[in-house]
């Protein structure tokens, strides 16, 4: 009881202060990089920009290519918020108009920066890379596909470890896949195939419910016990199609979508019962031991009562 009260006291008194200090530190960093980034975002932060055309001798309004627009709001909420644009992009971009060689710069990949520090250890970048190299994306598209194809470094934010809301994790994650897979033209450009992801999943009962409550990768990746989010995206013929893989006691979801919760619960409480409980309801997977026991006891009590009564009737009631 004492420990419980102490924990409550610490949570109430110190936690809000800690969160506030973190937020203040984050804002300080943002204020520091903002002036440098504003120079870029003046054009790249919106869908239209104006430049002085020396040949025409006047200002010209032009439309920014969609792929080169960065939302300032999303950028400062994302993981790379502390970086100035030219920390990653060639210093040639400091000049305007941008020189041609800057436009053909070699873009960094995740593992050029990540995977070397102690704080990166828990993320297992090398194992993620290994898995990714075996994925259908890499095997089919090679260098045309990279980490950035799914994880836009300008907007990427860690969700699986930090968000408490499973629905947010699911919608954030699925938007990465659906960005290409629900766009028939974009998908055709990348794969040469014309496919409608929703038609392909028509066999799935309550399609909307599944799309909103589980990530595409639950069924389309091979589970990897070493990394939190599996990256080996499988060819479609190897996707999970058996309902019971999720809708059963040892649900696949415990080693995919709910993996982090399971690990956390195991560390804190030494068990993972009811991880799925309170969050959502998965037929066959959401089970409550107490209710199971109560129902079995009641059922056999009723059956036993009937049996005893019918035996008494058989032996003692006069025909």
């Amino acid at each position: 009881m004492k420990n419980f009260l102490l924990s409550i006291f610490i949570l109430v008194v110190f936690l809000p202060g800690g969160i506030q200090a973190q937020e203040e530190e984050r804002q300080e960093i943002i204020e520091e990089v903002k002036p440098r980034n504003n120079e870029c975002l003046e054009c790249h932060g919106q869908d239209e920009y104006t430049y002085f055309n020396e040949q025409l001798g006047r200002d010209v309004k032009a439309q920014m290519c969609e792929d080169y627009i960065v939302s300032e709001e999303e950028y400062y909420q994302a993981n790379h918020f502390s970086f100035a644009c030219v920390d990653c992009h060639s210093s040639g971009f400091n000049e305007y108009p941008h020189p041609a060689e800057a436009r053909f710069e070699q873009i960094y990949s995740c593992t050029d920066c990540h995977g070397f520090s102690e704080s990166d250890e828990k993320y297992q970048f090398s194992k993620i890379e290994e898995s990714y190299k075996e994925s259908v994306h890499h095997k089919r598209l090679g260098e045309d596909f990279s980490c950035w194809s799914c994880h836009d470094p300008h907007t990427y934010a860690i969700k699986a470890r930090e968000s408490n809301n499973i629905k947010n994790i699911v919608s954030y994650n699925n938007s990465m896949c659906l960005d290409c897979h629900s766009d028939v033209e974009k998908f055709e450009m990348l794969s040469g195939e014309k496919k409608n992801v929703f038609e392909h999943h028509e066999w799935l009962p309550n399609q909307n419910l599944h799309f909103n409550n589980v990530r595409c990768i639950e069924c389309h990746t091979e589970v990897n016990k070493d990394i939190l989010v599996a990256h080996k995206v499988q060819p479609k013929k190897e996707a999970v199609r058996k309902c019971v893989e999720c809708h059963s006691e040892n649900s696949l979801l415990l080693s995919t979508l709910y993996k982090y919760r399971v690990q956390e619960n195991r560390q804190k409480n030494g068990f993972y019962n009811g991880v799925i409980l309170n969050e959502s309801y998965v037929i066959g997977a959401s089970r409550n031991e107490y209710l199971n026991v109560i129902s079995i006891v009641l059922f056999f009590a009723a059956l036993g009562g009937i049996l005893v009564h019918s035996l008494l009737r058989y032996f003692f009631v006069k025909k």
Binding site: C243, E245, H247, S248, E249, I283, G284
Partner: peptide, 8 residues
Amino acid sequence: LSMQYSSQ
């Protein structure tokens, strides 16, 4: 019952 106690 079959759904509630489904097993792999």
